[in-house]
C-alpha cells in the first residue's frame, strides 16, 4: 500500500527531547556558580630584604654587580640610581602634569635593560606619601613589557644562546623597609 504524502512529512519532522540535556545543565550550573571567581585576585611578589647579615653577605658576593635603585616621589617623579663599579649616576623622570610618568618610566626601564641585560633586580624606594596603587603601577611598568612590545633579549647562562623574554626587572624589592 502506498504511503500518503502527508505521513512522509510527519516522519521527517520530529521533536528532539531536550529534557535530559536540561537536567545535566541544571546540575552543572549550581556547581559552577559556587566555584566561579567573578573577581580574579592575583599576587605581586615583593620580598622584603632579609636580615642585615644576609644582605651584607649577598652584597659581598656581588661586588661587581650593577645595582639599580628606583626612588618614587609624588613631588619630583621617578629617579633611577645606577651603581656600577663604585660609580653612581642618576636618571630622572619628571612628573607628567601632577601624576607620575608611567610611560616614561617604562621606556627608561627597557633602555636600562638593554644596557644591563644580566640585571633582573630593582630596589624600589617609594616616598612615604605614595599610595599603594601607584606603587603597584610602578612595579608593573618595571617588571614586564607589554604583549605588543619588542621582547627583551639576554644570553642564557648555561647555553650562551640569546633568549627572548617579556620580563624586564622581575625582581622588584622594597629597599627602604629597614628604614633606609
Amino acid at each position: 500500500m502506498r504511503r500518503s504524502f502527508g505521513s512522509r512529512v510527519d516522519d521527517a519532522t520530529f521533536e528532539l527531547n531536550l529534557a535530559p540535556m536540561l537536567d545535566i545543565i541544571v546540575s552543572i550550573v549550581p556547581m559552577l556558580l559556587m566555584s566561579v571567581a567573578f573577581v580574579h585576585i592575583t599576587v605581586v611578589d615583593t620580598p622584603v630584604p632579609q636580615a642585615v647579615e644576609k644582605a651584607m653577605a649577598a652584597a659581598d658576593e656581588k661586588k661587581d654587580q650593577v645595582q639599580i635603585l628606583l626612588a618614587v616621589s609624588k613631588e619630583t617623579g621617578y629617579r633611577f640610581t645606577i651603581s656600577e663599579k663604585g660609580e653612581t649616576r642618576d636618571i630622572n623622570i619628571a612628573l607628567k602634569g601632577k601624576d607620575l610618568d608611567l610611560d616614561g618610566l617604562h621606556a627608561e626601564s627597557v633602555n636600562l635593560k638593554k644596557k644591563y641585560p644580566d640585571v633582573f633586580k630593582v630596589e624600589l624606594n617609594p616616598a612615604e606619601n605614595v599610595p599603594l596603587n601607584e606603587i603597584v603601577a610602578t612595579m608593573d611598568q618595571v617588571r614586564t613589557v607589554g604583549p605588543k612590545e619588542a621582547k627583551v633579549v639576554f644570553n642564557d647562562v648555561d647555553t650562551g644562546k640569546p633568549v627572548e623574554t617579556n620580563l624586564v626587572f622581575p625582581d622588584v624589592v622594597f629597599g627602604n623597609v629597614n628604614g633606609g
Binding site: H40, P47, V136
Partner: peptide, 9 residues
C-alpha cells in the same frame, strides 16, 4: 619577610 601584595587582575 616574603610579602605578596594581593591585587586585582
Amino acid at each position: 619577610s616574603d610579602v605578596k601584595i594581593a591585587v586585582l587582575s
